[in-house]
Nucleic acid binder design. Sequence first.
DNA 1: CCAAACTATGTACGTCGTACGGATTTTCCA
DNA 2: TGGAAAATCCGTACGACGTACATAGTTTGG
Lengths: 249, 249
Amino acid sequence: MTEYSGSGDPKRSLELLWGVQERPKRGPKPRLTAEEIVRAAIALADAEGLDGLSMRSIADGLGVSPMSIYTYVPGKAELIDVMVDRAFGELTPPGDADWRARLEHIARDNWALFHRHPWLLQITMARPPMGPSTLGKYEYELRAVDGLGLTDLEMDSVVALVTGFAESAARVSVNAAEAERRTGVSDEQWWESVAPLLGTLVDEADYPLGTRVGTAAGQEYGAPAAPSRAFEFGLARVLDGIEVLISSR
Amino acid sequence: MTEYSGSGDPKRSLELLWGVQERPKRGPKPRLTAEEIVRAAIALADAEGLDGLSMRSIADGLGVSPMSIYTYVPGKAELIDVMVDRAFGELTPPGDADWRARLEHIARDNWALFHRHPWLLQITMARPPMGPSTLGKYEYELRAVDGLGLTDLEMDSVVALVTGFAESAARVSVNAAEAERRTGVSDEQWWESVAPLLGTLVDEADYPLGTRVGTAAGQEYGAPAAPSRAFEFGLARVLDGIEVLISSR
DNA sequence: CCAAACTATGTACGTCGTACGGATTTTCCA
DNA sequence: TGGAAAATCCGTACGACGTACATAGTTTGG
């Protein structure tokens, strides 16, 4: 199952995101708080991935029964909304260097965030959680491209391009690391097991460029370096492309 | 649960991908073939999404019992590998126009493919299925940037940047459409239900740029146009950035 | 004609989110 | 001060999933 942000009840989600629950007057002392549950859930997702995050496993970690979680959080969908917003809260403002350095900061900051919290990449954010950190993130990003002569729409597009690129590059990197962790087989070992089988089925001459470039890429970097090289390469191109636009103003 | 390509048994997957099963001599006539199952599974995933794709639902559609599928396909992981490769088979070669037009073709072709088969975006492809169409795709892509004075590594990086961008932009578009289909609520309706609640919790003055740009973006395009505009905008920037590199050679 | 090879299927297990209802604990008010 | 109200906590249960396993049925080679 894919998880979606914004699929919970909007009102309950917003209350949770902005922390507007009033303390109840009667009833037993609560053993937990919603924030504690969110923190435990993030720690668990960091360690085990989103597939390892179940209401049962969260409850286990907190020493309560699974159904107790529902006292503090309406359901898993709303919980994930808050997890996402809290994770975005780790991002830092881009400072006041030139625009290129500011956008570079945003890209690197996002890249690092996705590596700290790989489960963010498994959440579909068509309807982002409208919490303080998500709104703050957008504000930071726009500030990085304000005053450059771009229209409002262009500012939005530039920010979306840079953050989208960072996400896309991080996805490749995280997926590679994840595949290694999950299977216990490195990219090199995987290729060494597939190549001989493939050799009996395929004529290399049918794929001359793929063979040549694939070999060159395999020789140049051992697997783990590749995704961060791709990030650096792509970031330079994207920023160059944005520079062409900005220079034309 | 997230689905992963390349998580099945490599030997069985490759046999399936390249169609090297020899017809069995004895036993009852098979009622199905592996290819039929793959086609049914793709049709089902196109219609219902990857979450609607279960061994039970595939079997239902084919009029057999769930366990019969396992006679033709080792498991769901290997089936998904073949689905991916067959989908990539729909991509077309970029032709022989100039490099920019060739890369543009690749980006648009991928964009369209992800819209025809949105489930492709839900599959983690750290270990791509090594089938004929996947190898052919890579060969096409490299041919588009061959002979421009780039190194082998740069060719690989440029191709990865363009296809990665197309995937990233398509993800935004597909997720938006998917959210609307799943919830029955359009982006505009969603915002109209969230905005008043948010207004009681947040001071707009805390997010001046977000408010201004968000309003401008909301006014300019009704929801559905936005993702394809973002694709066009980003593609132009990315190709400009690649042009800077190529011109420097 | 029978045994080997192959297809087809029913049952069962452990996973998930969470609806529901009941037991327990704390507080407020008459 | 006692009982109602409110809140916490949790046991049980349901229908979904992939698929292991055992069994039954069908076709064909020797």
